[in-house]
Design a protein around this nucleic acid. Sequence first.
DNA 1: TAGTGGTCTAGACCACTTG
DNA 2: AAGTGGTCTAGACCACTAC
Lengths: 259, 259
Amino acid sequence: MGTAVGGERSGPRYVQIADEIVQQIRAGVLKPGDMVPSESELVERYGVSGGTIRKAMVEVRASGLVETRHGKGSIVKDRPPVRLRSSDRFRRSLRQGGKAAYLAESAQSGAEAKVSVLYIGPMDAPEDAASRLGVPVGTKVLARRRLYFRNGTPTETATSYLPWDVVKDIPELFAENPGGGGIYARLEDHGHEFAEFVETLQARPASKVEATELALSSGAPVVHLIREARTTAGVVVEVCDTLMAADQFIFEYRIPAAD
Amino acid sequence: MGTAVGGERSGPRYVQIADEIVQQIRAGVLKPGDMVPSESELVERYGVSGGTIRKAMVEVRASGLVETRHGKGSIVKDRPPVRLRSSDRFRRSLRQGGKAAYLAESAQSGAEAKVSVLYIGPMDAPEDAASRLGVPVGTKVLARRRLYFRNGTPTETATSYLPWDVVKDIPELFAENPGGGGIYARLEDHGHEFAEFVETLQARPASKVEATELALSSGAPVVHLIREARTTAGVVVEVCDTLMAADQFIFEYRIPAAD
DNA sequence: TAGTGGTCTAGACCACTTG
DNA sequence: AAGTGGTCTAGACCACTAC
């Protein structure tokens, strides 16, 4: 019932239902923290079968506005107050001001950031990092692996790789907190002057494991960002491999028109 | 029957099946251009119901290795020979060499590129473009909307917005082909000297309409890139709004360590 | 017309979460 | 134990693509 007359809406029923739920969230009828009605309730409300509601909820999840947990239900996520990754974030002046890159940004967008260190220590260089660092695969490097939270939800995993030669005389790099200005400031303290940072980005659907790690619904897009930090001596002193929940970030780059 | 013995594989059946199909593609058992067996055939082969195969194929599509068309079947896509969007692409020297940005890149990666012009003409400035250009919403601007193909498949839609004041004396900008070096070269010919380009990127799942436009399976990730071209006079003379199939591109940006 | 994918149903059973 | 989402089935019907 309820379909035959009226609007003659187009498209599959499950899309209509999904849109309707998404609209309710965007319009504020369902606020962050609220539970979406259970699937059985939606079955009654819309007078369709369970499978149809199921498909609708898949669409709703894909919108990124909702997080579903087995046995519990779907909860409206906190509005993703997206973080701006400006290319200004590597300015020397910010480091000298004592702020690390991610804190500088979080401060800007008024969000509560947290970092959890997963591992700091020696590691055999994986293939991609090795080639970027210009060392043979399997060479001992320092790895710093961490997980970033934003308002309580994991948004980003990052692993830095640094050549052992470079780090062996800089004890701060083995500490969880490398001190004001972050690891780049420590590297500068020890005579490594940065020339440029090169970032490559690629967006793709999250794999199952990545999805769980970042608390995403599987298939949600992630951004894979790899940064090389190059010194004026022409050496890559860090490779940083990070994976981000795509809906949490907007990236901004300024390209000088030089040449 | 068929399942009970053997590997005791883990996870839902539809994921196992999806993985198996994806493996066959990666291993080359199914080559680009090949048709994936029809769903009814897979139902027989795996001895499961249609719904299960259906879900498996959703996963396979999400991998981006396959394109499905209603009434026809699923075909293994050409391996995405990803295109590198280097931030070098706006170098003045390239324009003076007579190449437009996208051609310069395509040449690099040895792929056959094509552009189809969808619309060139006046348009009331949409909200986002207007604010970036610093004009009121609805002001008349020149819009240049086009669709880029790569090896026959659509990969990118792009719409440029230019203030009418700027373009009214540059007839080449109303032509499909604005001549060697592209529109940026023409703008420079007329005294607009570029200072910098600012690009913002965001990745998200494609909406239904975007998916059809770019021949993607709905929900596949897209990258939304917006570029502002700023002159030394401090004016934004172009806003370019583009939407790309995420699996077709890798982005690279060089960030000078200045300051 | 025959074969394909796309939608929808009605119901069974399982797995997780909460009281 | 009751309620939730997750998987799977068996089958109907529709819409698109070929021939």
